[in-house]
C-alpha cells in the first residue's frame, strides 16, 4: 500500500495539457502529417509519385488523404522533392471531398463542429462503441491509448462503451471485411438515434491498403453515412483527439495551438 502511494508520487502527473492552454505534445521530427505537393517542381508529364503509390492516393497531382497511408513510397520515387509531409497533425474532416489536397494547397477544411442541436446532446458527453471491421489492431491500439492517463479522453466526456445501446455513435476501423459486415450493420442498428459515425484510418475511409479487395469493402462509406473522417495509417492519437474535439466543439476557435510559423519548413530525412 505504502509502496503503491510512493510509486504514484514518483510517476507524477502525466496527462497532456492539450488543449487547455497547453501546447500539443511534441511529435517525432520524422512524423508525417499533412502532405504538400509543390507542382512547380514537377516536370511535365511526370507521373512517378502516382505510379509509386501503392494505394492510388495520388492522381493528377491531387493527394487523397483518405487513401494515403503516409508511407515513403512517393517521397522516394520523386527526385524533385516536390512532395513533403508537414508536421501538421490536424487532418480530420467532416466531408470526404475535403480530404483531397490539391497542388500547392497548404491547409484543409478541418472538421467543423456539429450543429447546435447535436452539440447540445453530444458536446459534453459522447459515448462511442468502437467496431473493428478488419482493422489490424494499430488503429485500435492508438484509440485505446486515448483512454490512458497520458491523454485521459474522459476529461472531455468522451468514453468508449461496451454496448451499442449505451452509445451515441460508432467509431469504426478497418476496411469492413465481408465477414464483419453483418455484425457492423447490426451494431449500427442497435445504437439509438441520433447517432454519429466516425471512421478512423485509411482502411475505414477508403479501404486503404485493402481497397478493391474482393474479401473486404472499400471502407465504411458505401454502407453508412459518415460524420467524421480521421485519416492516417494509423492516425496519430493526437490526430484522432483533435478530430473528436473539433466535432464536439471543444476546441475554441483560434486556439489551434499548432506550432507556428511554418509547419512545412522541416524536411524529413530518409534513405
Amino acid at each position: 500500500m505504502f509502496k503503491g502511494i510512493l510509486t504514484r508520487i514518483k510517476q507524477g502527473y502525466k496527462t497532456i495539457e492539450f488543449p487547455d492552454g497547453g501546447k500539443a505534445p511534441a511529435l517525432s521530427t520524422r512524423f508525417k502529417g499533412l502532405p504538400f505537393l509543390d507542382s512547380e517542381k514537377c516536370p511535365e508529364n511526370c507521373n512517378r509519385c502516382s505510379e509509386a503509390c501503392s494505394v492510388d492516393a495520388i492522381s493528377h497531382k491531387i493527394i487523397d488523404l483518405g487513401r494515403c497511408i503516409f508511407c515513403d513510397d512517393c517521397l522516394q520515387a520523386c527526385p524533385f522533392e516536390a512532395i513533403t509531409f508537414s508536421a501538421d497533425y490536424r487532418l480530420a474532416v467532416r466531408k470526404r471531398e475535403d480530404l483531397l489536397v490539391k497542388p500547392l494547397q497548404k491547409e484543409i477544411a478541418l472538421a467543423e463542429e456539429l450543429d447546435k442541436q447535436l452539440r447540445r446532446i453530444f458536446g459534453r458527453s459522447l459515448h462511442l462503441r468502437q467496431v473493428s471491421a478488419g482493422g489490424c489492431n494499430a488503429c485500435e491500439a492508438d484509440i485505446n491509448v486515448l483512454s490512458t492517463i497520458g491523454w485521459d479522453i474522459g476529461r472531455f466526456g468522451i468514453k468508449f462503451v461496451a454496448s451499442p445501446r449505451h452509445a451515441d455513435g460508432l467509431l469504426i476501423t478497418g476496411p469492413v471485411t465481408k465477414n464483419m459486415e453483418m455484425a457492423l450493420m447490426k451494431t449500427y442498428e442497435a445504437v439509438p438515434e441520433p447517432k454519429l459515425v466516425i471512421v478512423v484510418g485509411a482502411c475505414a475511409i477508403s479501404g486503404g491498403i485493402y481497397a478493391d479487395n474482393i474479401h473486404t469493402h472499400s471502407g465504411v462509406g458505401s454502407l453508412l453515412p459518415i460524420d467524421l473522417f480521421v485519416p492516417g495509417c494509423p492516425p496519430q492519437p493526437l490526430t484522432i483527439l483533435d478530430g473528436l474535439l473539433r466535432l464536439t466543439g471543444r476546441l475554441e476557435k483560434g486556439s489551434d495551438l499548432f506550432s507556428k510559423p511554418d509547419p512545412f519548413s522541416k524536411k524529413i530525412e530518409f534513405y
Binding site: 517525432s28 520524422r30 497511408i69 503516409f70 492508438d142 490512458t148 492519437p237 524529413i268
Partner: peptide, 22 residues
C-alpha cells in the same frame, strides 16, 4: 498504459510512426 505509449514514441522517434511502418 502511459509507459507503453512512451515506448511506441521511441519507435516513432526513429521512423515517424509509432508502429514502425516504413
Amino acid at each position: 498504459g502511459r509507459i507503453r505509449g512512451d515506448f511506441l514514441n521511441i519507435t516513432a522517434l526513429i521512423c515517424g510512426n509509432r508502429f514502425g511502418r516504413g
